[in-house]
Amino acid sequence: MPTARPVVGRGAKVRAAVHAATLAELVDRGYAALTIENVAQRAGVHKTTVYRRWADRDALLVDALAEQMASDIPIPDTGALDTDLRELARSLVRTHTSPTGKALLAAMFSGAGGVPEIAAARRRVFDDRLERAAPVVARAVARGELAPDVDPAEVFKALAAPVYLRLLITGEAVDETTADHAARIALAAARAGVLG
């Protein structure tokens, strides 16, 4: 006999429960098997509750991905650029090596990645992440650690590139050593003035 799911309230609680259920379904079953019915059951809501807020599974997945990716990697303020970059890179690695992070990457860069809405959400997520991380560079400029013409987006692309290369292209192991190496690369490039 199936276990009864708890009944979830309205508004923000429903949204959070459905997002969590969506990500859990993505981790457990993958994009191809993700259904509104399974998400609703896991979230403890009726499927019409889900359809009332999201037109289809892709709209739901886009919303859940955007929310998860925006909140998963905090922006550090350690007082020094080298430690800020190291903490940022380590957060990126922790996020994308977790089961949820792996499922998110698989969804964004595999079959689901071909869905125009998912591709647009991926772009929005990365744009948002670059924008939220810009104060790290602004603070470094204010402290005199970097020249004012350094482009914050380019610093974070240089930071993320070695991590994503290993995650998505070469399949090499990704750990704190990878993160620390990526941070050193981005810091050296930023200080050399090649990221303006």
Rank of each mutant, 00 (worst) to 15 (best):
R15H: 04
R15S: 05
A16R: 13
A17C: 14
A17H: 14
A17K: 08
V18K: 02
V18G: 00
H19I: 06
H19W: 09
A20I: 14
A21S: 07
A21Y: 06
T22D: 03
L23W: 00
A24W: 03
L26K: 01
D28Y: 11
D28K: 14
R29D: 03
G30E: 04
G30H: 09
Y31K: 03
Y31Q: 12
A32Y: 01
A33T: 07
L34C: 04
L34M: 14
T35F: 09
E37F: 10
E37M: 00
N38I: 05
N38A: 13
V39C: 07
V39E: 10
V39M: 05
V39D: 09
Q41Y: 13
Q41K: 05
R42M: 06
A43C: 01
G44W: 03
V45L: 03
V45Q: 08
H46N: 08
K47G: 01
K47V: 11
T48N: 13
T48F: 07
T49K: 07
T49G: 12
T49M: 07
V50D: 00
V50Q: 02
Y51V: 06
R52W: 01
R52M: 00
R52F: 02
W54H: 11
W54N: 07
W54L: 02
A55E: 05
A55P: 00
D56S: 08
D56M: 03
D56L: 04
R57A: 12
R57F: 04
R57C: 06
A59C: 05
L60F: 09
L61G: 04
V62Y: 03
D63E: 11
A64W: 04
A64V: 11
A64F: 06
A64L: 11
E67D: 15
Q68G: 02
A70F: 00
A70N: 04
A70W: 05
S71E: 09
S71N: 09
S71G: 04
S71D: 13
D72V: 09
I73V: 15
P76R: 04
D77T: 03
D77M: 06
T78L: 13
G79L: 08
A80I: 10
T83W: 07
T83H: 12
D84S: 08
D84P: 14
L85F: 06
L85A: 12
L85S: 07
R86F: 01
